[in-house]
């Protein structure tokens, strides 16, 4: 077990390295520079100095090695577009916001999605099942940017309950709309998977045994079926992280949340490569670690799975 975890942790490094290298190659192949201002071109001398300052005039392999060395030392370099803040400072300021938002959204998704899915499975093929399907599918059918726009119009303009945007911490009313907008997608996904894998285990022998013992349906679901049904659900919970990250791109932008997702979009559209590389590495690390946690949880849920 310990060796398995250690080995998996060791694998994170080459993964990050591959992500870093591929992204580096890609950003230098992408057309457009951070300084192609749309109408007024920069004087040649200024452009040269900018290139020199950011070492863009060095040969690519040298840039790559220098940058890699800096990153290994924990220095992501300056942001091209925000001269007053370094990449590390931007990430340090924005990552906690997105982390809070992401965790709250996941929590919301689990608290709403899993029970909703279980309910649908227990009442399989009844109107409750159909209504639950309808809710979850409608949740996933509206893309995040539509979802957040509709939520803003509804809660801020029609009802006048919530501010139209901004961020004052996770316990402020400004967090509600982004949490809903990000969390609804994963909630729908979790509900569907819970339903389908509960149905899957429903017909199996040990459930029938449990029923035969005279346990109530709820006890059967919670004590026996649920645990076995959780494997795909947990897997999805890991994968929904990607879903949460993607949704945060749109939601943070539209709701003016100063998070890392918004910085990611800006860094791509503004060609702020050091910032982009920094954020991509953060995402890669996060995804690798969460997937490791997910793999470990298989073992807890199903002792038959062994780690080699």
């Amino acid at each position: 077990m310990t060796t398995y975890v250690l080995r998996r942790l060791l694998w994170v490094l080459p993964s990050l390295f591959v992500v870093f290298t591929l992204t580096f190659i890609l950003v230098h192949a992408t057309p457009g520079s951070p300084w192609d201002e749309s109408d007024k071109p920069l004087p040649a001398a200024v452009k040269e100095n900018l290139a020199r300052q950011y070492h863009l005039d060095d040969p690519l392999p040298k840039q790559y090695i220098d940058y890699l060395a800096n990153v290994l030392r924990g220095d992501f370099g300056p942001s091209y577009r925000s001269v007053e803040r370094s990449v590390s400072e931007i990430i340090a300021a924005t990552l906690p916001v997105s982390a809070q938002l992401g965790l709250a959204s996941m929590l919301f998704a689990i608290v709403v999605g899993v029970p909703l899915g279980a309910l649908a499975a227990v009442k399989h093929n009844t109107w409750i099942d159909y209504v639950s399907s309808l809710i979850t599918v409608t949740g996933i059918a509206t893309p995040p940017f539509v979802r957040v726009s509709l939520l803003i119009v509804f809660f801020s303009l029609v009802l006048g309950w919530l501010p139209t945007g901004g961020w004052e911490g996770i316990f402020d009313s400004r967090a509600i709309i982004p949490i809903l907008a990000i969390g609804l997608g994963p909630a729908a996904i979790l509900a569907r998977y819970t339903r389908s894998s509960l149905l899957e285990v429903h017909g199996q022998d040990f459930i029938r045994t449990a029923r035969a013992k005279g346990l109530t349906e709820t006890a059967v679901v919670i004590r026996h079926a649920m645990k076995n049904a959780l494997i795909p659900v947990v897997t999805v919970a890991g994968v929904t992280l990607a879903n949460v990250i993607t949704a945060s791109f749109f939601v943070e932008r539209i709701y003016s949340v100063p998070g890392i997702g918004r910085q990611f979009v800006d860094s791509v559209s503004g060609r702020d490569y050091p910032l982009l590389l920094g954020i991509v590495l953060v995402f890669a690390l996060l995804i690798s670690l969460v997937n490791l946690l997910v793999d470990l949880s298989y073992g807890f849920l199903d002792p038959r799975i062994r780690y080699r």
């Binding site: 709403v112 809660f155 309950w161 009313s173």
Partner: peptide, 20 residues
């Protein structure tokens, strides 16, 4: 389980309604 769903929805709405 139905209670749980109802409860979580209620919490969200309550927070929404109470926060100035």
């Amino acid at each position: 389980m139905r209670k749980l769903v109802a409860f979580s929805l209620l919490v969200v709405l309550a927070v929404a309604a109470c926060t100035p």
